[in-house]
Design a protein around this nucleic acid. Structure first.
Lengths: 99, 99
DNA sequence: TAAATATATCATAATGTTTTAATAATTAAT
DNA sequence: ATTAATTATTAAAACATTATGATATATTTA
């Protein structure tokens, strides 16, 4: 990776690096969801969810299709689910995370 | 992942989400390095490197052993190199990165 | 057309990150 | 003991992120 690539990769990682945004990715791993389903499931405000989704879409982690007055969100790149496995193991093995 | 786990995972991802810190991980993928080798290779100040290494060590991404007046840095968890592959592909496939 | 529903945007206060420069601490060699 | 080399800490300015509440924009339904 050259420096430009690292700058972009850092932006993508930043877009993942938030509990709500990780939650969105995790929920969408199961299935497509509307914006309101997402903020109900994850327990945050509508405004918060709208802003976090914008960040995820900007980095193309999530894509959105419109249907009437609703918007359906889904994962753009399921490859990122690997990062969850990696984190899961790291937290337990290196950071002493207890369930 | 529950919310506590997401909070911790977000911290780990934040620790990666910086061009210099990504550079450190990439360089250390090849071999162990001293702090001064790292800031020379990556072209940043000594102070900057020291601070970035602290962040990487806190999340146990990097570990350090002391030898005389120098410190040798190495990767704690090589599993994270997977994240680089993932990013490499994502930038090109979804974010139109040009070499 | 008016009301209801779903989502987005804006403003802002609080908080956190990044960068730089200056200084401190530690070890090794003279 | 001084000096040189390596690394860490601190302080501060600039900048970015987060969270909240208020308001705006579509879209559908009555």
């Amino acid at each position: 990776m050259n420096n430009d690539e690292r700058i972009m990769a850092a932006e993508v990682l930043k877009a993942m690096a938030h509990p709500i945004r990780l939650g969105v990715i995790e929920v969408l791993a199961g299935d497509e969801r509307t914006v309101s389903e997402l903020y109900e499931i994850l327990g945050c405000s509508q405004s918060m969810m709208s802003q976090q989704l914008k960040i995820l879409c900007q980095q193309q982690l999530v894509s959105i299709r419109k249907e009437g007055t609703q918007k359906y969100c889904s994962l753009s790149n399921r490859d990122f689910l690997k990062v969850f496995d990696c984190m899961h193991t790291h937290l337990r093995k290196y950071l002493n995370f207890k369930d």
